[in-house]
Design a protein around this nucleic acid. Structure first.
Lengths: 123, 123
DNA sequence: CTGTATCCCCACCGATACTG
DNA sequence: CAGTATCGGTGGGGATACAG
């Protein structure tokens, strides 16, 4: 197996610099809830706040808000607040976020399929 | 965009259960250093402890050891300690780990390419 | 060279209460 | 409905010293 040409081009010696900007985004994506929020939106549908809370099981209001704000600031998630009462807010992936989510989905697939074996072995 | 058939089959309602075993493995892979350690080994070469420390910039001895033990217990990383003095230990991906790493590499590619834009926008 | 052992902090996160 | 504000604990993780 080989790492990609892209990575080789950026890091010929195989070292990803601690100062590399990708570390920051990696932290966002691999944050406790970032991955699951992006995945929940990966179907392409807009989801309401309450629907997101339901799908990302276990997330608290605080962490959902924080995660959504981070991902929105990163340009990965779009927030659409309709000016009605009671409030109605929809979240969806931006084109950039959709690109990213396409890479996350096969990873989650693999984890779902192999997790039982892995945990059996690990005890 | 659509989530994969695999995810749909496991979670028809789009909800990944909080109790799903994949959450545990997801935590290992998305842990602060798990992703980078797997990536460092993704070239396929065996790496020595000291080489890993060099490539995964910023990791402490404690966290490298802990991460490697977790990944080894998960069957993703193989540890080969040669009975010589001074000690000589090599780490590599298992076939399972190599499968996983193949999904991680394109993700890191994407992050490296897009991180600058994302951070510019996010400030 | 390849780790373990220990101390300790603080940032993450959950729980709860409250608001437009 | 869709959040914000605040408090408190907890364990992840860094620093250091030590060991086989």
């Amino acid at each position: 197996m080989e790492v990609s040409q892209t990575l080789r081009r950026h890091f010929p010696d195989g070292v990803i610099a601690a100062s590399c900007p990708s570390r920051v985004v990696l932290d966002h994506v691999t944050s406790k809830w970032g991955f699951l929020v992006l995945l929940a939106l990966a179907e392409g549908d807009s989801l309401r706040w309450s629907e997101l809370r339901r799908r990302v099981q276990g997330v608290s209001e605080k962490m959902l808000a924080q995660t959504l704000r981070t991902l929105e600031a990163d340009g990965l998630v779009a927030r659409d607040a309709k000016p009605v009462v009671p409030p109605h807010v929809e979240y969806s992936l931006t084109p950039l976020g959709a690109e990213l989510a396409q890479l996350l989905t096969p990873l989650m697939d693999w984890l779902v399929v192999h997790a039982p074996d892995i945990l059996d072995r690990a005890g």
